[in-house]
């Protein structure tokens, strides 16, 4: 597990049913590309977040595959719509098998 990995998400607290809401996500992660070398000239092994998903009550909003060309501290912004109050689940998958999760509730009026 990479050090100090911390997810951040921004989801509106409330929305109308079916309304488009903007979701912004950011996670602290080096996204080590595998292309770099250390000071001794040895390749630094690749370690990236290779997949990010956002689900709402078990239904998929976005399922993204990430490659080493995504910047350090990966940022993903997208739009969701939800039929009723519930909870978003955000999951980041690390090359080393670590999984980072966070959730955010939304009230639909």
């Amino acid at each position: 597990m990479a050090d100090n990995v911390k997810p951040r998400v921004r989801v509106p607290k409330s929305a109308k049913a079916g309304e488009a809401i903007v979701i912004k996500t950011l996670i602290s992660h080096p996204m080590e590309s595998g292309q770099r070398k250390d000071k001794q000239g040895n390749p630094i092994p690749r370690q990236i977040i290779n997949r990010f998903t956002c689900e709402f009550e078990g239904e998929m909003v976005l399922d993204a595959t990430l490659e080493p060309a995504v910047s350090t501290n990966p940022y993903v912004e997208f739009e969701a719509k939800v039929p009723a109050s519930g909870t978003f689940k955000f999951t980041w998958y690390d090359d080393d098998g670590s999984v980072y999760e966070t959730t955010e509730a939304i009230t639909v009026s």
Binding site: A20, M60, V61, L62, D63, T65, L66, F78, E79, A80
Partner: peptide
């Protein structure tokens, strides 16, 4: 770079 797969709850 990346691939975005949109689920049924993507608003766009």
């Amino acid at each position: 770079v990346c691939t975005f797969n949109f689920g049924p709850l993507a608003a766009s």
